[in-house]
């Protein structure tokens, strides 16, 4: 499933937000929303981006899309550099990437019917024939499991789950290859979540899509993604195949994150305490590791030297001084089993 050439490659991406110099007043320091992030996404892959609220997941997604300008770093799409452009040019160069908003209801113009909104995207992307546009919209509404007559209705007439389908259809009409999904299941009840996730998997298989999947819901990430990147305070602290990360998390933050997830199955209890305190401020400059203040195993080395993201095992990168490869024999069998059950 995973090819060798990444479709999207992010290199040392940094995004500063909202810094401002004010006249005769104290200037506002910028927020380091995304800090030196590198990430590869291969065609057909589903990469889950996980982290607590405010860790920069959404900013990273928006920057990849081009709605937010990167401060430094490079973004490659299909091997071509698409960073360092004005927002309008960046969007043009990154047409193959589309973004599905978290709040589907708010992402649609309340005064426009669903059909008009959906056709608008096609018109912007240069489809001149009105009849062709209508036909495409009807086809896509069917593909996401809605009735084609939904085109005549307005956003407030739909339920939350239906609106997710509408926004998904809107983006799929633009034939993207990489879809950034921002919390596609938040605010939906369990049964609707399941149908939306199944739809996402089905569409990926049918249309050959690649997903960057932003979420804080670990059970959803475990179910859907092939690979997971854990973010903490604007940095990627651990990335590995989904089964690996859920079976043997190495970064202390990943461990507390997994331990904090509520589950019925007490046997899986890892014995790790839940994380203490709130994340430190983004505006603060961290000398060492950003997590050290809340870390159960933090030492003086962590306080002075920031740990780089390094490869511990094949395809398992961790940004922690104390991450070590585990003994490989039993882990392998567990991993195989986990992969089978996750899909």
């Amino acid at each position: 499933m995973t090819g060798t050439e990444p479709i999207l490659s992010v290199r040392s991406l940094t995004v500063l937000l909202g810094g401002r110099r004010r006249w005769l007043r104290q200037s506002v320091p910028p927020v380091r929303a995304v800090n030196d992030v590198s990430l590869d996404i291969r065609p057909g892959e589903i990469v889950g981006l996980v982290g607590e609220s405010g860790c920069g997941k959404t900013t990273l997604g928006r920057t990849v899309l081009g709605l937010q300008r990167e401060t430094s770093g490079e973004i490659h799409l299909d091997g071509a550099v698409v960073s360092g452009m004005s927002p309008a040019k960046a969007r043009l160069a990154r047409k193959a990437i589309q973004y599905v908003h978290q709040d589907a209801a708010a992402a649609l113009d309340p005064w426009w019917s669903i059909g008009r909104t959906l056709r608008e995207g096609l018109l912007i992307h240069g489809m001149r024939d009105a009849a062709e546009r209508s036909a495409k919209v009807a086809e896509m509404l069917t593909a996401v499991g809605l009735d084609p007559t939904a085109a005549q209705r307005y956003p407030h007439e739909f339920s939350g789950g239906q609106l997710r389908r509408v926004t998904l259809a809107r983006m799929l009409l633009l034939s993207p290859r990489l879809l950034v999904l921002d919390e596609p299941t938040s605010g939906l009840d369990m049964s609707v979540q399941a149908t939306v996730l199944n739809l996402l998997l089905e569409l990926r298989a049918r249309l050959g899509l690649t997903y960057l999947f932003i979420s804080h819901d670990l059970s959803v990430v475990e179910r859907l993604s092939d690979r997971v990147a854990i973010m903490y305070l604007g940095r990627v602290v651990e990335t590995a195949a989904t089964a690996t990360i859920f079976a043997r998390p190495m970064h202390p933050y990943t461990r507390v994150l997994l331990a904090a997830a509520p589950r019925l199955d007490r046997a899986k209890d890892t014995g790790v305490d839940t994380v203490i305190g709130d994340p430190p401020s983004h505006t603060q400059v961290h000398v060492g590791c950003a997590f050290v203040g809340r870390c159960p195993i933090g030492t003086d080395l962590c306080r002075t030297t920031p740990p780089p993201l390094r490869s511990i095992e094949n395809g398992h990168d961790v940004a922690c001084h104390y991450a070590q490869p585990a003994d490989p024999v039993p882990a392998g069998t567990v991993r195989m089993h986990a992969v089978a059950s996750a899909k």
Binding site: L65, L67, Q98, H101, A107, D109, G121, I124
Partner: peptide, 16 residues
């Protein structure tokens, strides 16, 4: 608002 953000995302021009 989010819907204007979404419109920019799909490449809508300022006049539109």
């Amino acid at each position: 608002s989010l819907f204007v953000d979404a419109l920019r995302g799909i490449g809508a021009g300022t006049a539109r």
